[in-house]
Simulated scan of single mutants.
Amino acid sequence: MSFKNKAELKEVQEKDLKLILDWRNQEWIRDCMYNREVISMEQHLKWFEKLQKSETSISRIFYYGGIPYGILNVNDIDKVNKRCEWGFYIGSEDALRGMGTILGFTSLNYIFNHIPVRKICAEVIGSNKKSISFHRKMGFVQEGLLRKQIVRDGLDVDIVLYGMFKEEWSKKSARIQMKIEGRYV
């Protein structure tokens, strides 16, 4: 059985909110975010309420083999220019090796096949070497660098900008799928 049959993205439901908040408030997740503060349940509920009404944002929980492991956030969906921004993370600390790659593959397929976009953009904190490596591995191209864009712990931090077009993903996805099937499943 292909990993693609085990991987799925499900709409965020109210019953999922505690799990997502627990994931998001883990220090190692917060460290990769613009906002590193612990989020309250009240703030989280406001996010969910706004998400439900939004025409430019989508969130999905990533399941593998029926177990929730992470989340996909698609924001700033621009129907005119056919582009969006994405963010994601594996929240489960006991996720199997390669689960982030499977989440990325599943998410990119979902975005390009279910949202009318031609381009996905990403902003990565310059100190997040794991995410930088991930975006390159998935086929994103670095499009820019926002030098000293944010201040963290009194230090100026760069933001790395990435982009990928639908036709680029079409060319790279089969190779990435083969790597996943050869390494992780």
Rank of each mutant, 00 (worst) to 15 (best):
56 T>I: 12
56 T>N: 09
57 S>P: 03
58 I>S: 00
58 I>M: 00
58 I>G: 00
59 S>C: 09
59 S>V: 07
59 S>N: 11
61 I>D: 09
61 I>V: 14
62 F>P: 08
63 Y>R: 09
63 Y>N: 11
65 G>H: 02
65 G>T: 03
65 G>Y: 02
66 G>V: 03
66 G>S: 04
66 G>M: 04
67 I>K: 03
68 P>N: 09
68 P>Q: 09
70 G>K: 00
71 I>E: 13
72 L>W: 00
72 L>H: 00
73 N>I: 11
73 N>E: 12
75 N>F: 14
76 D>V: 07
76 D>W: 11
78 D>R: 11
78 D>I: 07
78 D>L: 10
79 K>R: 15
79 K>T: 01
79 K>W: 07
80 V>K: 14
80 V>A: 14
81 N>A: 13
82 K>I: 11
82 K>S: 14
83 R>S: 13
84 C>D: 10
86 W>V: 08
87 G>W: 12
88 F>M: 14
89 Y>H: 10
90 I>N: 00
90 I>F: 00
91 G>V: 04
91 G>M: 12
92 S>D: 14
92 S>N: 14
93 E>S: 11
96 L>V: 09
96 L>F: 11
96 L>R: 13
96 L>P: 13
97 R>N: 15
97 R>K: 15
97 R>Q: 15
99 M>F: 01
99 M>Y: 01
99 M>N: 01
99 M>P: 00
101 T>W: 07
102 I>P: 01
103 L>S: 10
103 L>H: 07
103 L>M: 12
104 G>Q: 02
105 F>P: 10
105 F>T: 09
106 T>K: 10
106 T>M: 10
107 S>P: 04
107 S>K: 00
108 L>E: 06
108 L>A: 12
109 N>E: 15
109 N>A: 06
109 N>P: 04
109 N>Q: 10
109 N>K: 11
110 Y>T: 05
110 Y>M: 07
111 I>P: 01
111 I>R: 02
112 F>T: 01
112 F>N: 00
113 N>D: 12
113 N>H: 02
113 N>C: 02
114 H>L: 03
114 H>C: 08
114 H>G: 02
115 I>M: 01
116 P>D: 15
116 P>E: 15
117 V>D: 06
117 V>P: 04
117 V>A: 05
117 V>Y: 02
118 R>W: 06
118 R>Q: 13
118 R>T: 10
119 K>W: 03
119 K>F: 03
120 I>K: 09
121 C>I: 12
123 E>V: 06
123 E>A: 11
123 E>R: 13
123 E>Q: 13
124 V>Y: 10
125 I>F: 12
125 I>L: 15
125 I>P: 04
126 G>I: 10
126 G>S: 11
126 G>K: 10
127 S>N: 06
128 N>H: 12
129 K>I: 13
130 K>M: 06
130 K>Q: 09
130 K>L: 06
130 K>T: 13
132 I>V: 15
132 I>E: 14
132 I>L: 15
133 S>Y: 14
134 F>W: 13
135 H>D: 11
135 H>Q: 15
137 K>D: 05
137 K>E: 09
138 M>R: 03
138 M>P: 02
139 G>W: 05
140 F>Q: 05
140 F>S: 05
140 F>H: 06
141 V>A: 04
141 V>E: 08
141 V>Q: 08
143 E>P: 02
143 E>C: 12
144 G>I: 15
145 L>H: 13
145 L>C: 15
